[in-house]
Deep mutational scan, measured.
Amino acid sequence: MQGVVKVNSALNMRSGPGSNYGVIGTLRNNDKVEIIKEVDGAYEIRFNGKVGYASKSYITIVN
């Protein structure tokens, strides 16, 4: 499943599905991501070869 990031500035990509996990990357508006699955209000995603988590509130599914 594919998604597009929709933010005003940037969205943190984290090592786990919550803000208490470390930041492993930054997503920008209109970045395209692969959605692997939904976990606790976040999506597990793949972006630029990395797998991490981002809030589903800022990712629009575009299948």
Rank of each mutant, 00 (worst) to 15 (best):
G18D: 10
R46K: 11
V5Q: 01
N30H: 09
Q2C: 15
Y53G: 01
E34T: 12
K50N: 09
I35K: 00
K50C: 08
K50L: 14
R46Y: 12
G49M: 04
G52Y: 03
V5R: 01
G52M: 03
I45L: 06
I59T: 00
F47L: 05
V7G: 10
L11I: 15
I61Q: 05
D40P: 07
V62S: 09
I61L: 10
V5S: 01
K37I: 05
Q2A: 11
A10G: 11
E44W: 08
L11N: 03
Q2P: 09
Y53D: 02
F47T: 03
K56N: 05
N48F: 06
Y43L: 05
Y21K: 06
R28N: 12
Y43R: 00
R28V: 11
V5K: 01
E34D: 11
A10C: 15
N48V: 03
G18L: 04
K6P: 01
T60M: 13
N29Q: 07
K32P: 08
F47G: 02
V51E: 07
V5E: 01
F47H: 09
Y21P: 04
R46C: 13
K56Q: 07
F47R: 03
Q2K: 12
N12S: 11
N12K: 14
R46F: 11
I45K: 00
Q2I: 15
N30I: 02
S57C: 15
S19A: 13
K32I: 15
I61C: 08
S15K: 07
V39P: 01
I59S: 00
S9C: 15
V33K: 00
I59V: 07
V51G: 04
D31H: 03
V51D: 05
N29V: 05
T26M: 11
N30R: 08
N29P: 10
N12A: 15
S9H: 15
G3H: 02
Q2T: 13
K6Y: 06
E38Q: 07
Y53A: 01
I61P: 09
N30C: 12
V51T: 12
K56F: 03
N30Q: 08
S57A: 14
R28Q: 13
V4N: 03
M13A: 05
N48I: 04
N63D: 13
T60D: 12
G52K: 01
V51H: 10
V7I: 11
V39M: 09
S9N: 13
G52Q: 02
I61F: 05
Y58D: 11
Y21T: 14
N20Q: 13
G16L: 05
R14Q: 07
G25E: 13
K32V: 15
S57M: 14
R14A: 05
Q2H: 13
G18H: 07
V33G: 00
V23M: 04
I59K: 00
N20R: 10
Y58I: 06
K37F: 05
T60K: 13
K56P: 07
D40A: 10
R46E: 08
G52V: 03
N12Q: 14
S15V: 08
S15G: 08
G49S: 06
N63A: 13
K6D: 04
G41T: 07
G25T: 10
K32T: 12
N8P: 10
V23N: 05
I45T: 00
P17A: 07
K32D: 04
M1Q: 11
K6R: 13
V33C: 04
N8C: 15
V23W: 05
K50F: 08
S9L: 11
V23P: 05
D40R: 09
E34I: 12
V39T: 08
T60Y: 13
I45V: 09
G22R: 13
N63G: 13
S55H: 10
I45P: 00
I61V: 12
V23H: 04
R28H: 14
K6H: 13
S19C: 15
G49W: 02
T26E: 10
D40M: 09
N29K: 07
I35Q: 00
R14I: 06
E44H: 10
T60F: 14
K37Q: 11
N63R: 11
K32A: 09
V51M: 09
N8W: 06
G41C: 10
R46S: 10
N63E: 13
G22D: 15
Y43Q: 00
K32Y: 12
M13R: 02
G25S: 09
Y43W: 08
M13H: 02
A42C: 15
R28F: 12
A54S: 03
D40S: 09
F47N: 02
Y43A: 00
E38F: 05
V23K: 07
A10I: 15
E34C: 13
N29I: 05
G25F: 06
I35M: 01
N48D: 12
A54C: 12
K32H: 12
G25N: 06
A10R: 14
V5N: 01
V7L: 05
E34A: 08
I24H: 02
E38H: 03
N48R: 10
S9V: 13
M13C: 07
G41R: 05
G52P: 00
V23E: 04
L11D: 02
M13K: 01
V39H: 09
V5D: 01
A10H: 15
S19P: 15
G16D: 04
D40V: 06
V33S: 01
I59F: 05
Y53V: 03
V39N: 04
K6Q: 10
K6V: 11
L11T: 11
A54L: 10
D40I: 06
E38C: 10
Q2G: 07
E44A: 06
E34H: 10
V62E: 10
Y58M: 09
V62G: 07
R46Q: 08
G25H: 09
I35A: 01
I59G: 00
K32R: 14
F47K: 03
A54K: 00
M1R: 12
G25D: 13
S19Y: 13
I36S: 03
Y58H: 14
I24P: 01
A10M: 14
N20F: 09
N63V: 13
G16S: 09
I59Y: 00
N48S: 07
Y58T: 07
T60S: 11
N12H: 15
N8T: 13
I35P: 00
P17K: 04
Y43T: 01
K32S: 09
V4Y: 06
V33W: 01
V7E: 03
G16Y: 04
N63I: 12
I61K: 06
S15I: 08
G3E: 01
R46I: 14
A10V: 15
K50R: 09
G18N: 12
N20D: 13
T26P: 05
G41L: 07
R14P: 02
L11K: 11
I24T: 06
I24R: 02
F47Y: 10
L11A: 11
A10D: 12
A42W: 15
I36G: 02
V51Q: 09
N29T: 07
I59C: 02
G16E: 05
L11E: 07
N8I: 12
I36R: 04
I45S: 00
T26Q: 12
P17I: 08
V62W: 06
I45H: 00
S55P: 15
M1L: 13
V39D: 04
N20L: 07
R46V: 12
Y53I: 03
N30F: 08
E44T: 02
E44G: 02
A42T: 14
Q2Y: 15
I45Q: 00
I24Y: 00
G3D: 01
Y58F: 13
V4A: 04
Y21R: 05
G22H: 14
N29W: 07
N29Y: 09
S57L: 14
G25Q: 10
M1C: 14
Y53S: 02
S9F: 13
K6C: 14
K37A: 13
G49K: 04
T26L: 13
N29F: 08
M1E: 06
P17T: 06
N20E: 13
G22A: 15
N30S: 06
R28I: 10
G41W: 12
D31C: 05
G52A: 05
F47I: 08
V62Y: 08
S9I: 13
A10N: 11
E44F: 12
P17D: 03
G41S: 08
K37M: 09
G41V: 04
A54W: 01
L27E: 00
G52E: 02
V33Y: 01
A42N: 14
G18I: 02
Y43G: 01
S9D: 13
N48T: 03
L27G: 01
S19T: 12
S55L: 09
V4Q: 07
V33F: 03
Y58N: 12
G52S: 02
V7M: 04
V4H: 05
E38W: 04
M13Q: 02
G18R: 04
Y58V: 08
G49E: 07
V39R: 05
G16I: 04
G49P: 01
N8F: 07
M13P: 02
G49D: 09
I36V: 09
A54F: 03
A10W: 14
I61M: 08
G49L: 03
N29G: 08
G25C: 14
E38L: 07
G22V: 14
A42S: 14
N29H: 09
G3M: 02
V4G: 01
R46D: 05
G41P: 02
